[in-house]
């Protein structure tokens, strides 16, 4: 198991290295000169050159990359062109907001999708099944920002139960954090729940027709035992992947939702960095998202090996 984990960590590190290279090169293709943007109306050729050489932008590309990588390894992701603050600090500051939104959204989605998907499959063709189908169709076809706006109008405007936007850190005030996270999390979570419901339904349905489920029924086990012990565990294996992909993509920040709810997360940060051509911040944000993505996948692989004994861990 340890060797398996180590090997997967090493693989992830190599992928991450590739990500840094791609991000670094891609940014070279983006038109627009960050130093010019930073100087704005105060442009003069001497300051321009001085700033360029201070940022290392006059060096050849491989040197720039090597220097970037060397610093990144020590946790130094450079400073923002715009504010002069260290990138690692900026990114770290935004992480809790995105993390708490993503995790809350996924937990909400799981709480909805699991019971709904399982019941829809076990009682396929029933009213619950049809309701689940309508729900998931609704969730995947209605744009999330529209649902978000409707949520704000209803719960913040008409009913006045929840704040329309803004963020309070969980560590600062859990109660106010919860009231602020509820609307964006449910908005994002509904989409995830719709996707998951469909997936869980079809996965459970497939397992229900498996021979070993008939074997379990032949043994005269209670229905609940058949579903929990024999169906769910097998149906869960493919679902884990989908949950992980959903979680990973939410960890990358949900740009529209974060903008809509004034949620100071990674998505919002990325959006602002692109607009300002703040390369170091953008690189830092993308690097962080990639790292989170790899981490989630690593955890999923380990979870997989635990769920499915057929995956040999050597």
């Amino acid at each position: 198991m340890t060797r398996f984990v180590l090997r997967r960590v090493l693989q992830s590190a190599i992928v991450l290295l590739g990500v840094t290279l791609v991000v670094f090169l891609l940014l070279q293709l983006v038109p627009g000169d960050p130093v010019r943007v930073a100087l704005g109306t105060r442009f003069d050729p001497q300051t321009y050159e001085a700033l360029r050489s201070r940022a290392g932008l006059d060096q050849p590309l491989p040197v720039q990359y090597a220097s970037y990588l060397g610093h990144a390894l020590t946790g130094d992701l450079g400073v923002s062109f715009r504010t002069g603050q260290p990138v690692s600090w900026i990114v770290a500051e935004r992480l809790p907001a995105t993390l708490s939104l993503a995790v809350t959204a996924v937990v909400f989605a799981l709480l909805v999708a699991f019971p709904l998907g399982i019941v829809a499959a076990v009682r396929s063709g029933s009213a619950v099944d049809h309701a689940a189908r309508v729900f998931s169709q609704f969730g995947v076809s209605v744009p999330d920002f529209w649902m978000g706006i409707m949520g704000i109008i209803l719960f913040a405007g008409v009913l006045g139960w929840l704040p329309p936007s803004g963020y309070v850190a969980l560590t600062e005030d859990p109660g106010r954090w919860a009231s602020h996270v509820a609307l964006p999390a449910v908005t994002v979570g509904l989409v995830t729940a719709s996707i998951l419901t469909r997936f869980i339904r079809s996965s459970v349905l497939e397992v229900l027709s498996a021979d070993y489920v008939r074997t379990a029924e032949a043994k005269g086990l209670r229905n609940r035992v058949v579903i929990l012990r024999h169906v769910l565990r097998n149906a869960l294996i493919p679902v884990v992947t989908v949950v992980a992909v959903q979680l990973a993509s939410l960890l990358g920040g949900v740009i529209v939702i974060e903008v809509l709810f004034a949620w100071p997360g990674i998505g919002r940060l990325t959006f602002d960095a692109v607009q300002a051509r703040d390369y170091p911040v953008l690189q830092g944000a993308v690097l962080l998202v990639a790292a989170l993505f790899l981490l989630v996948n690593l955890l999923v692989d380990i979870l997989y090996a635990r769920l499915d004994p057929r995956i040999t861990v050597k």
Binding site: A210, D211, Y212, R214, T215, A216, A218, K219, G220, L221, V225, R229, H230, R233, N234, I237, L307, D308, P309, R310
Partner: peptide
């Protein structure tokens, strides 16, 4: 479950792949 035992056609698919065999043998 108490009085009838079943042996099905395909042993490759009639056992649950994620449960140890001993557990499957005696859960009834």
């Amino acid at each position: 479950g108490r009085h009838v035992g079943f042996v099905f056609q395909d042993p490759m698919t009639s056992l649950n792949p994620v449960l140890p065999v001993g557990r499957q043998v005696t859960e009834a």
